[in-house]
Design a protein around this nucleic acid. Structure first.
Length: 261
DNA sequence: TAAGCTTTGACACGCCATAA
DNA sequence: TTATGGCGTGTCAAAGCTTA
């Protein structure tokens, strides 16, 4: 997708969300949805919105639930064309990229690098309303994601992600996506990649996947990075050797620069 | 008086700081 | 690293209030 097209998509997304909000009659209810999802500014808690509207957080929750049910029904009946317009864009993207994905990744593909928080919120919002989509809510273990509903609900997707994590753990070392696909039962490597990308417990380097705590796929310090570079050049070195290498170079540098002080 | 609106109180869960 | 407690947040069931 060209930069111009991506910029158009961002604008389309914004105006579609404005159209959807027009389907809500009461100003108070629009305020709740806008603020809860963070559609035009940062997300707010039930408590914060309740304070603003002078009602309890529980009442905000009840209203939010009721509004979403009404919007979902209206969208399902085809009364909110804007939902379907964005739904088509998201479904097309997911169909080409493993049928599920992190909202961050979907947004990046749709509107370009560094999508705004609002853009991601708008994608998740449409995902909530669309009968063809399912939203995976973020928590400790999973990133916020969106998937094609016919492939399974949120619970099933979380189960698939868990299965991939378990498989990698059992394997005991980083594994490339093709091999990982061969160890599992999914239609394509891209689907395995898409599911794996939802896990906060996994990381990848050049499409080799492993646990986030494994430095070979998630190098955190200079020692890890040197290891990865050497391994990449066919010169694997033990961590203890790298530590000695860094120590020697540091002492040598200190001796060298002490002459200038 | 029934239906819809709103509050209340209790509970669960996750996050974070702190101590051991 | 693990256990603990406080806090913020979301959820539920039940009850009170308002309105037509």
């Amino acid at each position: 997708m060209s930069d111009t097209a991506k910029s158009d998509t961002a604008a389309t997304l914004k105006s579609a969300v404005q159209e959807i909000l027009k389907a809500i009659d009461q100003e108070r209810e629009r305020e709740i949805i806008t603020r809860r999802f963070g559609l035009f500014e940062r997300r707010e808690t039930l408590e914060q919105i309740g304070e603003l509207l002078s009602i309890t957080r529980e009442r905000v929750r009840q209203l939010e639930k009721a509004i979403l049910i009404r919007l979902k029904i209206a969208a399902d009946e085809g009364k909110i064309p804007a939902v379907h317009e964005i739904e088509r864009l998201i479904v097309r993207d997911l169909s080409e990229n493993g049928r599920v994905g992190r909202v961050q990744d979907v947004a990046t593909r749709m509107v370009g690098n560094m999508p705004t928080i609002e853009t991601k919120a708008r994608i998740a919002f449409v995902g909530e309303l669309s009968p063809k989509l399912v939203v995976i809510n973020e928590n400790d273990n999973y990133y916020q994601g969106v998937g094609i509903a016919e492939n399974g609900d949120e619970k099933k997707i979380r189960g698939s992600v868990d299965e991939i994590v378990k498989t990698i753990k059992k394997h005991g070392e980083p594994v490339d996506i093709e091999t990982l696909h061969g160890m599992l039962n999914y239609e394509s490597p891209s689907q395995v990649r898409a599911l794996a990308s939802l896990s906060k417990g996994l990381a990848s380097l050049k499409d080799v996947w492993g646990l986030v705590k494994w430095p070979t796929v998630n190098p955190k310090n200079i020692r890890d990075k040197i290891y990865v570079i050497l391994a990449d050049n066919g010169k694997p070195m033990h961590f203890s050797e790298i530590a000695k290498f860094i120590k020697d170079r540091t002492s040598s540098a200190k001796r060298h620069y002490s002459g200038y002080s």
